[in-house]
Nucleic acid binder design. Structure first.
Lengths: 240, 240
DNA sequence: GGCTAAGCTATTGTTGAACAATCCCACAAG
DNA sequence: CTTGTGGGATTGTTCAACAATAGCTTAGCC
């Protein structure tokens, strides 16, 4: 069955190179990292709403990990801005204020503009991912699956940044979106949050495909301004 | 001696507000945070060169902290990309390759362009900080203090990003520069690294002052391209 | 009544020791 | 020259302990 090849010898198809790419999928850093991912998910889906105090004893018992391991996970979450650490008081799920949201959208503007400017020289796969995200969002809207519309929207904007082809920009955009989800939790309905922007995403990819990067930048800027204001006003209503 | 004022009563000079700004300087999050800062400094100044293995036992004994506390500090450094964590092997001071440097400079281009575009609407203090950094660099060059020229250069570029007025962009630029210092360590002399760029910084602020943002963007782009290539070639020579 | 001060309790900050799992190295065997 | 095989060191994780702190409760006072 198996062919008689020597993996130690350099070969035409780089099987080894491809396997090396999967290395990080297996060698997960261990318990602390996994705990951090679980908490990230629970914060993102609202199970741990902003302001919640993350008791070391309670969480440690619930997850079956020691306090030390839990504290390591907390460090990661603090650096991701998902929780805040108050000395001798504990860690709390972060509560964003309108200033935070405004700043996040300012950064999004910088990042997504950078991606947009690289659209002309972007690889076909990256442009295809952009189109796929928009199409996926429209399909989810047709099916009435508004949470999926939301994730498709974020996938679209992450794909927009990815046009620049910069791993660090990609990673930062991912972090930013995780932080932004804290603000989305304040919105009453996912539909009201994402439906108005479906058509703009479509328009942006169309303008990119037509080579009108400047036009796309204009639509994008209006998108971000409007989304930011929508969330900020919702937060102000909720807070007052 | 002391004046008889009630700090609880709102007063004209906001002494309390200014004190509150210093709160984070005192109420440091504790041992782990301080350990992380010490290690950051030692990595930046080359005392812990890239590739060094950070033994838990040795470092814990040297710093007088427990392994658990040290591991918390490691998490922060991993998130800052200053060290890499290999499962069951330990943490090592990060070794950058030319691809990393190229990516870092791509992000710098995006961030500093963003600051540049905000120059027209930036506050006078921020523009003054920009000028001060350039002048400080020139003074240090006159005194032959090349390490100081280097920090002044980085201060200038951080001030450039700060024109955008975004806390998150500022923080990310700071992180990026900390990472970039890992690459600077591969350069043989601080003078060769920073001297060629003194005049370009001066030129950039002059163009900004003249309102020629587009011209400044051009000089900046050439700056970043040249600096990136200089470091990358030095790394390739060093590695081979 | 409302305010201040002292004390109690629960939680966090940090340490030290313990044990299993894993990696690295040296060495022997084929 | 490659392939097992120990042995030793280091990491991953837990547990138990103690000091320090925050927040609440209660007592005392005007």
């Amino acid at each position: 069955m198996g062919q008689d090849v020597d993996l130690a010898r350099p070969s035409a198809d780089d099987t080894l190179g491809r396997l090396a790419a999967d290395r990080d999928l297996l060698g997960r850093s261990g318990t602390a990292q996994r705990v951090a991912e679980v908490l990230r998910d629970r914060i993102a889906d609202g199970a741990l709403p902003p302001g919640t105090r993350l008791s070391e004893q309670a969480l440690g018992a619930a997850l079956g990990v020691s306090r030390n391991t839990l504290r390591e996970a907390f460090r990661t979450l603090v650096d991701g801005r998902l929780v805040v650490h108050e000395m001798n008081r504990g860690v709390f799920v972060r509560m964003l204020d309108p200033d935070d949201v405004t700043d996040i959208y300012a950064v999004r503007r910088a990042l997504e503009d950078t991606g947009l400017r690289a659209a002309a020289t972007a690889t076909p796969e990256r442009l295809a991912a952009l189109h796929a995200a928009v199409t996926g969002g429209e399909a989810a809207a047709g099916a009435g699956d508004w949470p999926e519309v939301g994730t498709a929207d974020l996938r679209f904007h992450r794909a927009l940044v990815a046009l620049a082809g910069s791993p660090r920009l990609d990673e930062y955009m991912t972090r930013l979106i995780a932080e932004l989800r804290l603000a989305f939790l304040a919105m009453p309905s996912a539909r009201a949050l994402h439906e108005p922007f479906l058509r703009r995403n479509r328009r942006i990819v169309d303008l990119i495909a037509a080579g009108d990067t400047a036009g796309a930048a204009l639509v994008l800027e209006r998108y971000l301004d409007d989304a930011c204001e929508m969330i900020c006003t919702a937060m102000r209503m909720d807070g007052a």
